[in-house]
Design a protein around this nucleic acid. Structure first.
Lengths: 222, 222
DNA sequence: GAATTAAAAATTATCTATAATTTGGAAGGA
DNA sequence: TCCTTCCAAATTATAGATAATTTTTAATTC
C-alpha cells in the first residue's frame, strides 16, 4: 500500500545520496555533478538539483553557486557541536516522551540495545542504536523536534562510519540500560540526564590515512 | 561589491516567499502554485521548485507530491515546541558564546534592546529582538547550531505576527537587561537560565477572526 | 452516485545561455 | 634549453528556459 506513490524522484535521489555520504562512499569535498547523477538515475538534472537542496538543508552537502555542489566536510569541532545539539534536543524530547512511554516500548528499546550489543559491524550497531533512540523519543510526538534529531543522527552516523570504517569491537551498552531502568521507575529527569551525558561521549579511534600514516578520528558513539 | 553574484534565483525566491509566509501575507494552507510564482518573478518554474525544497526544510511549507505545495499550518502545540527548542538550543549557544563576548558586543546588544523597547510596531520589535539574540549567540561560532536557531526564529516571528497583526504595545524588556547584566558579571550559566525562561514565555492576544468573532492567539514574545 | 471526459497543475525532459575551469601555447627570465 | 607565468581559446558544467508528459482535480453525463 502507498507503495512509493507519495515519492518523487528528487526525494529518492536525496535519500540515496544521503546514504552514500553517511556511509562514506562519497568522501568529504567530493563533487556531486548533476549531469552524472542524473544519468545514473536515468533522469534529467532537474530533480537532481532538488535533491541537492535537501542535502544542503541537512548539512550533508554545500553549494557554491555556479561552481557546483560538494559533499560537506567536517572536523572535530563539528562532531562536538552535533553531540551537544543532540544532548540538548534529545534531553528535551525524552522529558516530553517519558509520560507517554509504555512497557511495550521500553521492551522494544531493550531489544534494540541487545541487538546493538550483538552487532558484528559498525553499520548494524548504528542501526540498532538509532532505533533505540527513536523508540524512546518518538512518543514525545513533537514532529519538528524529531525531524531535527533525525538530521543530527545522520551527521552522527557519518562521523562514526568515518572513524570506524573497520575495526569495530562489540561492547555492552550500560548507558542504554541505565536509561531504561530510570524510565521504568518513572525517573524521567534522571533518564534524560544520563541520555545527555551518553550522547556527548566522543570516542576516538586510529584511522589509516591514504598516505599510509595514522591519525586519530573522533565520533559520537551513543 | 559581490553584489548578488553568489546568489541564485532560487535562493532569492525562497527568501521572498519565506518573508511573505512569516509576515502572514501568505496564510497557512495557501497553495503555492509554481507557475504563478514563476510568472511573478519572471522566471521559469525550475528555480521555483528549488525554492520550495528550501521552504520545506525550514518548515514553512509542506509538499504533497503531485498535488502541490502549501504554506505550512501551525497550532499552539507547535508554538510550544518551537519555544522549547529555542530554549534548549539558545541556552547551549549562549553557554558557548559567553566566553567570547566583548564589551562592544554587549553594548550593541543593549542598544538592540533599547530599539526594541522603542519599537512602534511588531515588525520593528521583532527585528530588534532577533538582532539581540543573534548578537549574543553568534560568538559561539557554531554554524550548524546558529542556522538551526535562525530557522526557529523564523517560525517564532511567524507565530508572533499571526497573533499581533495589530495592537502592539510598547514594553520594557527586563529579561534582556537581566541577561546582559549577568553576562557582564561573567555569570554565564545564570544568563543562560534567564534566556531559557525568557524564550519559553508565551504571550496571548485576542485576534479577530474572519467571521467577526474573537479567539485567543498565542506566540513566543522573547 | 458512479463513470467519463476535460482542464489545470505538477513533474520531468530537452534545449540554450552563461559562467568556471582547464589547456595550450607564447613571452619572459634564469 | 628549461622552467615559470600569463593570457586566450576550448572544454566542461551549472543555471535557467522551454517543451513534453503524467497526474490530479473538476465538470459533465448517464
Amino acid at each position: 500500500m502507498a507503495k512509493e506513490h507519495d515519492d518523487t524522484i528528487a526525494s529518492r535521489i536525496s535519500r540515496v545520496l544521503a546514504d552514500r555520504i553517511i556511509r562514506g562512499e562519497l568522501a568529504p569535498d567530493a563533487r556531486l555533478r548533476q549531469d552524472h547523477i542524473a544519468e545514473e538515475f536515468g533522469t534529467s538534472h532537474v530533480p537532481v538539483r532538488e535533491a541537492f537542496r535537501r542535502l544542503e538543508a541537512q548539512g550533508l552537502a554545500v553549494n557554491l553557486p555556479r561552481r557546483g555542489v560538494r559533499v560537506a566536510s567536517f572536523d572535530l569541532k563539528e562532531v562536538r557541536e552535533v553531540a551537544e545539539m543532540r544532548a540538548a534536543l534529545e534531553g528535551l524530547a525524552l522529558r516530553h516522551a517519558a509520560q507517554h512511554l509504555t512497557p511495550a516500548i521500553l521492551d522494544a528499546a531493550e531489544e534494540a540495545t541487545r541487538e546493538g550489543d550483538a552487532a558484528s559491524d559498525v553499520y548494524a550497531w548504528e542501526e540498532a542504536n538509532r532505533r533505540f533512540h527513536r523508540l524512546i523519543l518518538a512518543p514525545s510526538d513533537m514532529a519538528r523536534l524529531l525531524a531535527a534529531i533525525d538530521d543530527l543522527h545522520a551527521a552522527s552516523a557519518r562521523f562514526l562510519f568515518s572513524a570506524w570504517q573497520s575495526g569495530w569491537e562489540k561492547r555492552t551498552d550500560h548507558d542504554h540500560r541505565a536509561i531504561l531502568a530510570a524510565l521504568r521507575q518513572g525517573r524521567a529527569d534522571e533518564a534524560a540526564a544520563i541520555l545527555q551525558k551518553h550522547v556527548q561521549w566522543i570516542g576516538r579511534a586510529p584511522v589509516r590515512t591514504a598516505s599510509g600514516s595514522t591519525r586519530e578520528a573522533f565520533a559520537i558513539v551513543g
